[in-house]
Amino acid sequence: MNRAERRRQKKAGIKVQKEPTLNLKVSDFDHMVSHAEKSAKERATAAAIHEIDRQILEHDEAYSLDIDAMVLWTLHVYLGFGKKRLERFYRDMLKEHIHMREVYEMDDTYPERYKLKELCNVDVEALNNEFKEVIHNV
């Protein structure tokens, strides 16, 4: 509202309240914009990371079921486990996995790999690589 409008309203008996004038330096404005951009980038990055983590967990659950099925199938074929023994083994395996995740409080999804290497000197990753190499050479 300009001065002429304020005078007209004052003559008409309308209470006029003058709005304060704000001065803003260009450098202050640039700082505000860059801070807003940085904040928006941080929020967008955090949201993207959250979504990626959610999708990883979703896929990990599906892969875990496939790996579990592969283990149970191998026990059935090579060791003759039937339904009852397979179910008992699977319950015990899941219980042990949950226990190890709680006890060792590792960021890794599967602390068993590290404990097998530490306690039994069984390096699952080395075995995996060895068997893959054998398969590719056949």
Rank of each mutant, 00 (worst) to 15 (best):
G13I: 03
L79T: 05
T21M: 09
E87I: 06
L94G: 00
K15M: 10
S64V: 03
L57P: 06
K18V: 08
M70K: 13
N23A: 15
R43G: 12
A44G: 12
L86D: 04
M70A: 14
D60R: 01
V71C: 05
N2D: 05
V33H: 01
S64C: 05
K83I: 05
A40Y: 13
V26F: 14
M32N: 11
D66K: 14
D92P: 02
A36W: 07
I52V: 07
L75D: 02
Q9H: 12
H50A: 14
D28R: 10
E19N: 13
A47W: 07
A69R: 05
I14R: 04
V26L: 15
T45I: 14
Q9K: 13
R43E: 11
K15C: 09
D28E: 04
E37K: 15
E51K: 10
K25E: 10
F29R: 04
K41I: 09
K84M: 07
R6P: 00
R8I: 09
K25C: 10
A12W: 02
L72M: 06
Q9V: 11
R101Q: 03
Y63S: 10
M100H: 06
S39A: 15
K41F: 14
M100Q: 05
A46H: 05
L24F: 05
H97I: 00
K38Q: 14
L75W: 00
T74H: 11
L75S: 01
D53T: 08
P20R: 12
G82H: 10
K84C: 10
P20K: 11
K83T: 04
E19Y: 14
K25H: 11
D60H: 08
L86K: 04
E58D: 12
R91G: 05
M1V: 06
I52R: 04
M70V: 06
V71L: 00
A4E: 13
G13D: 01
E87P: 07
Y63L: 10
A47C: 08
G13E: 03
G80K: 05
K10V: 09
S27E: 09
K15H: 13
I67H: 03
M100L: 06
M100E: 04
D60S: 08
R88V: 10
H76S: 07
H99D: 03
E5D: 07
A46I: 09
E96W: 03
K18S: 08
S34A: 13
D53A: 09
A69Q: 08
K25D: 07
N2V: 02
D68M: 14
P20Y: 07
I98F: 00
I14W: 05
V77N: 12
G80V: 01
K83S: 12
Y90A: 02
I98N: 01
F89L: 00
R54P: 01
A46F: 04
Q17A: 15
M32E: 10
E5A: 08
F29P: 03
K15T: 13
V71P: 00
K38F: 12
L65P: 03
